[in-house]
Design a binder for these strands. Structure first.
Length: 813
DNA sequence: CGCACCACAATTTTT
DNA sequence: TTGTGGTGCG
């Protein structure tokens, strides 16, 4: 064998041997895991196992370095070696694994040379734990973080270089909003034209394109756009105030990190040398500055691997740009592209529907999901009279599923807007279905949580004027708004922290009237600050609740809302304890860092048995056996704003694709003929997306569809008339679920007016989902309804009589 | 200073 | 319909 030939066969055998370690992957996944060098774009369809690829790719890097993707051949290779590798590839157990590893490894990568960036803490956490399961202790050295936490980590080292102290605080969205509201007032801008959200949106876009306030103002000057000039003023002031407060908002974290890396060659080189391999997850959600960050971190070898799905890009409104994916190959020459199209999640009809819908989009890379599973159940369209009936249909279907042995957690209700959750909560409560609403007002957005956190921030950072003004009079301690305003003005005039001014309030005539109260407050904060070195974060937390009087104030007010608030405040403590368990040197500042980036206190807990409801946006990345996409109506989904705007429509369609692909076994689409939304009743047509689903994939109500339902239909006649007639028809029937469920095929969702049976305490009942039970309490309610407590063999359910009668009958004795 | 009442607006939101 | 923010009174 010639030398060249030997080398060639060695390279091939080496790759095969390495591949043997990853034989549980499919061909495309394997390709992703073994392609280690240079820019790589992995287009990963929904449910195609992209995290698996990511994990295995990292494992491969650590074990074999670039062995699977290089022409390098070590000296002294023999034919024996090639044979050994081939033997290993054929049956790994039979070969000397140690020797194989030596032969295959080419510069194995130290774990700390790998950075994997995700968007959510949840994804980062999942990545970390799966890496740990696969690699053990090595996993701890891999940077597996969100964009924002990676930036915090980088900035904590070198914040001085971009003009902040290393102990900067992080402003969340509402901090930014309240700062901006003040600015609008102080600059006397017209609050109608310039809402805080509008200006912040403009600033966010500016930062996304790396434009500082100064640059933005310059551009505004040149543009003769008066509006823009005002925004520029606000931007400049916002930037100044955050700098004074030593605070960065979410966008700043990225912005200043990019700035830091751009302007400081040594810092940039440090990270580039350190990180030999950069991986970015959910690449379709990156914005421009995040792209810049990624490319700044990528060293000369260009080892950047991005994973994403252009069809799942649903965050354009937050600045995400699908271009990052679409242009990847142009930006990184020699980039390789791998498509993962085999779906392991859903059955055939579901995937066929998803493919068909997304096919209507232009401007995409193009993918077709396929599955080795069978066709499974068809989709089901259900049309209800109104939103209440829609919710009852869903509740009823879930009860059926539960009766058939499913768990509550197998069901998810997905809607376009949080406002739609009400009806479902109502129906689920009445039917006794345990559920949780994910998203909406989030834990850390609750006033009581923000208050308590504000105390902690002020204790940790004396310069945090924003949080200080939030709590200075919470609970009420006789320091009024006017007093705070004057103090703030003084602070601004002297450019000192507000806290210092308050401490020195005796020196200012304007403040002397409330001086004693102010000093009581500052003393309290000071003594809490004195505890910083001595007590652990949870003890400080207790001390804050105690000395601030916050907890007492909550307890004294006897309103039922406060029960929940107190619970929340306690819940925060368990957060602190959780943090302390995870970190080696827990500090209050460290906790606050974490919390600032950890907005969602991941409420979705897969272990507990609840049906869940959430927006189609929040469901990305999750999966459920049965999914309900509700409110599938033109005007709701797609929303009104999207109609007539092709780009928006494509975004909505991607959202639809995301929603459909969450379902593993069964997907329901529901709509209502009439619905009340924001106090207005409207009649919407079924979503145009439903029309994009092939008829062979979906069961629809077999009723005559009005002409207007067929887009571009030529049935003649006035669509409006037909539609109006259609809406006037008495609608009492419900539409059967497919024949796979004969048990319920003819049992319609209950109408609320159905005659309620009469029940008294002690009656025995049979519920179709919960089985046999005994009525333990009956509380009469308004409208002739009653709240029942029924003991079903140990678990007591609260049910509404009228709703429950549809699912339950009295046992005859 | 604190509370009650009225006007107004309202996709989606990983950090 | 619901929640929030601003104003005016006790």
């Amino acid at each position: 064998m010639t030398n060249a030939k030997l080398m060639k066969s060695f390279i091939a055998a080496r790759r095969d041997a390495i591949a043997a370690d990853f034989r549980h992957l499919n061909d495309m996944q394997l390709e992703g895991a073994l392609t280690t060098e240079g820019p790589l774009l992995i287009l990963a369809g929904a449910g195609s196992g992209k995290t698996t690829v990511l994990i295995n790719r990292i494992a491969n890097l650590i074990r074999y370095g670039r062995g699977s993707d290089t022409d390098f051949v070590p000296d002294g290779i023999t034919e024996q070696d090639v044979l050994l590798l081939r033997q290993y590839a054929a049956s790994p157990a039979a070969a000397d694994a140690q020797r194989v590893r030596e032969l295959c490894a080419v510069e194995p990568v130290e774990p700390w040379r790998i950075i994997a960036i995700t968007f959510t803490n949840k994804a980062a956490g999942e990545l970390r734990s799966r890496l740990e399961a696969m690699l053990g202790a090595d996993a701890g050295d891999i940077w597996a973080q969100t964009f924002h936490s990676a930036c915090v980590r980088i900035l904590r080292r070198d914040a001085e270089l971009v003009g902040f102290s290393h102990s900067f605080t992080i402003y969340d969205t509402s901090d930014s909003v309240s700062t901006m509201k003040r600015i609008i007032k102080d600059l006397n801008l017209d609050e109608k034209t310039f809402t805080a959200n509008y200006i912040l949106g403009q600033i966010s876009r500016a930062k996304d394109s790396m434009q500082s306030a100064e640059e933005y103002c310059a551009e505004a000057e040149a543009s003769y756009d008066i509006r823009k000039k005002f925004v520029g003023m606000a931007y400049r002031e916002y930037e100044r105030r955050l700098r004074d407060a030593n605070a960065l908002d979410f966008d700043d974290l990225i912005f200043y990190t990019v700035k830091l890396l751009r302007e400081n060659e040594d810092v940039r080189d440090y990270y580039r040398r350190r990180f030999r391999y950069v991986l970015i997850d959910e690449y379709q959600d990156t914005n421009r500055s995040q792209y810049m960050l990624a490319s700044l971190l990528t060293g000369e070898d260009g080892n950047i691997c991005v994973v994403g799905d252009d069809d799942q890009s649903i965050y354009k409104f937050r600045g995400a740009t699908i271009e990052n994916i679409l242009l990847f190959e142009q930006r990184y020459k020699k980039a390789r592209v791998i498509r993962l199209e085999q779906n392991y999640r859903s059955t055939g009809h579901i995937l066929s529907a998803a493919n068909a819908v997304i096919r209507n989009n232009t401007g995409r890379k193009g993918k077709e999901l396929w599955t080795a599973q069978g066709p499974g159940e068809k989709l089901t369209l259900s049309i209800a009279d109104d939103e209440a009936a829609e919710a009852r249909f869903v509740a009823s279907t879930i009860l059926d599923g539960f009766a058939a042995g499913a768990n509550w957690r197998d069901f998810a209700v997905l809607y376009r807007m949080n406002a739609q959750s009400n009806q479902f909560e109502y129906a689920f409560k009445r039917a006794g279905i345990p559920y949780r609403v994910i998203g909406g007002t989030r834990f850390f957005d609750r006033a009581e949580i923000k208050d308590v956190l504000a105390y902690l921030c002020v204790v940790a950072n004396p310069a945090d004027d924003l949080r200080l003004s939030r709590i200075v009079n919470v609970p009420a301690r006789g320091i009024g708004q006017k007093t705070v305003d004057t103090a703030r003005d003084i602070a601004a005039a002297e450019s000192r922290p507000l806290f210092d001014v308050l401490k020195g309030c005796r020196d200012y005539a304007e403040l002397s009237r409330s001086a004693s109260k102010i000093l009581a407050f500052t003393d309290m904060i000071d003594s809490l600050r004195g505890l910083l070195g001595e007590l652990s974060p949870d003890e400080i937390y207790d001390a804050v609740l105690e000395s601030s009087g916050y907890l007492r104030a909550l307890q004294e007010k006897n309103d039922p809302e406060n029960e929940a608030r107190i619970e929340n405040v306690k819940e925060l403590k368990s957060n602190i304890l959780g943090y302390m368990n995870e970190v080696e040197e827990p500090t209050l500042a460290g906790f606050l860092d974490e919390i600032a980036l950890y907005t969602t206190l991941d409420q979705y807990d897969e272990d507990s048995d609840y049906a869940v409801m959430m927006t189609m946006h929040s469901v990305k990345g999750l999966e459920f056996p049965t999914v309900f996409v509700v409110g599938a109506e033109n005007g709701i989904f797609p929303g009104v704003q999207a109609i007539g705007d092709p780009d928006e429509m494509e975004e909505e369609r991607r959202l639809c694709y995301v929603a459909i692909t969450r379902a593993k076994k069964k997907l329901y689409l529901t709509c209502a003929r009439r619905r009340m939304l924001f106090g207005r009743t409207q009649a919407n047509l079924p979503s145009r997306f439903i029309d994009e689903i092939p008829v062979e994939d979906i069961d629809k109500p077999e009723e005559k569809r009005p002409a207007m339902w067929n887009f571009g239909g030529t049935d003649g006649g006035s669509g409006y008339e037909e539609y109006a007639r259609y809406n006037r028809e008495p609608q009492t029937r419900t539409y059967s679920t497919p024949s796979q469920r004969p048990a319920r095929a003819h049992s319609p969702a209950p109408a609320p007016k159905s005659a309620a049976m009469s029940l008294t305490v002690g009656d025995r009942v049979v519920h179709k989902a919960f089985g046999n039970g005994t009525v333990t309490a009956v509380t009469p309610m308004a409208g002739g309804d009653a709240l029942l407590s029924v003991d079903f063999g140990g678990t007591v359910k609260k049910l509404m009589l009228k709703t429950a009668s549809a699912f339950m009958k009295k046992e005859q004795t």
